[in-house]
């Protein structure tokens, strides 16, 4: 992108005498001076350092403060291991369920015309507008002791709140839109031409889905899965409300961090936190790699039709 050159090229032959002056003036007015530029870059980096970089480094530094022995010991006890297990389990349930939903809803919304489509899309995005604590609260109101279904559940000896099912439900709610909202815009852009071609050539619905649609959206799907998994493993507020905070039973990793921290066991709290921070860094790395693949899927979706709008 040689911006600036394009329009200048037109002027310069006519104004060769004053060319340098115009170039200089335009440069001054379309680029910041060195001083301003330096100031802006300095402010940016300074702000990011104070708000992002130092806190990130602090997690690992605090985790290793009492030595590698204490660090490792933070993971080898029953409470930590069971928190890891419950976190992985929750994500292993929520991500596939939301993938199936994401694919189904994207197929229905983008391959067919029906009334109330935009209302449906708004409803799918709804959990993003609900704060974490309220996301947990609604399940307490539904399944808690005094909840709507509470007496019935107690009668049948089923426990949802303060137990693993509540954690899974709350996580399902907060991660609900992630996959769908990555797929819907892309599939909307891709239209139905390829699927229609496949079906008219005799492919069944499943074959069309597996061989045409899925390969076309695989990177966007993976992107959605990465985001969904990160949130599923890291959700704190919603899970905190529905979990009984029972050590070794209903603790996920973020809740385990909170308990350790509140017990002033800072080294262990930061050790467990560093595991989650590592997961976040991996998520960012994977996200960066997958992001440009998704952009290519968009570019390909726009290509065959040629004209925009």
């Amino acid at each position: 992108m040689s911006v600036g050159g394009s329009s200048l090229a037109g002027i310069q032959p006519n104004a060769s005498l004053v060319g340098d002056d115009i170039t200089g003036r335009l440069k001054r007015a379309t680029d910041e001076s060195k001083l301003v530029k330096g100031l802006l870059i300095g402010t940016s980096l300074g702000f990011l350092t104070l708000v992002l970089f130092v806190p990130l480094v602090a997690i690992f530094a605090e985790a290793l403060r009492k030595g590698i022995g204490v660090f490792l010991a933070s993971f080898t006890n029953h409470a930590a291991l069971s928190a890891i297990w419950l976190t992985v389990l929750t994500s292993a349930i929520c991500v596939p369920l939301n993938v199936v939903f994401g694919l189904a809803s994207a197929w229905a919304i983008t391959k067919f015309q029906f009334r109330g489509k935009s209302a449906l899309i708004t409803l799918i995005d709804l959990p993003f507008a609900v704060s974490p604590v309220i996301s947990g609260l609604i399940f307490v109101l539904l399944f808690g002791m005094q909840g709507l279904l509470g007496p019935w559940l107690r009668g049948h000896d089923i426990q949802i709140i303060f137990a693993a099912p509540g954690i899974v439900l709350a996580t399902l709610f907060v991660t609900f839109p992630f996959v769908a909202r990555e797929l819907i815009p892309l599939m909307q852009e891709q239209g139905t031409d390829e699927e229609l071609a496949a079906v008219s050539l005799g492919a069944s619905g499943w074959q069309t889905f597996w061989r045409v649609t899925l390969p076309n959206v695989k990177w966007a799907l993976l992107y959605g899965v990465i985001l969904c998994n990160a949130r599923a493993m890291g959700e704190f507020g919603a899970v905190s409300v529905v979990s009984g905070h029972i050590r070794g039973q209903t603790n996920t990793l973020p809740l385990h961090v909170e308990i350790l921290y509140n017990e002033y066991n800072f080294a262990a709290a930061f050790a467990v936190a560093s595991l989650l921070a590592l997961l976040a860094i991996l998520t960012l790395a994977a996200k960066t790699v997958v992001e440009w693949r998704v952009r290519r899927e968009y570019a390909q979706a726009l290509e065959p039709t040629g004209a925009e709008e």
Partner: peptide
């Protein structure tokens, strides 16, 4: 976006 909020919370407190 990626960091669990509890982790952000204790990191910011440490700083």
């Amino acid at each position: 976006f990626a960091l669990p909020t509890a982790v952000s919370g204790i990191a910011l407190t440490a700083v």
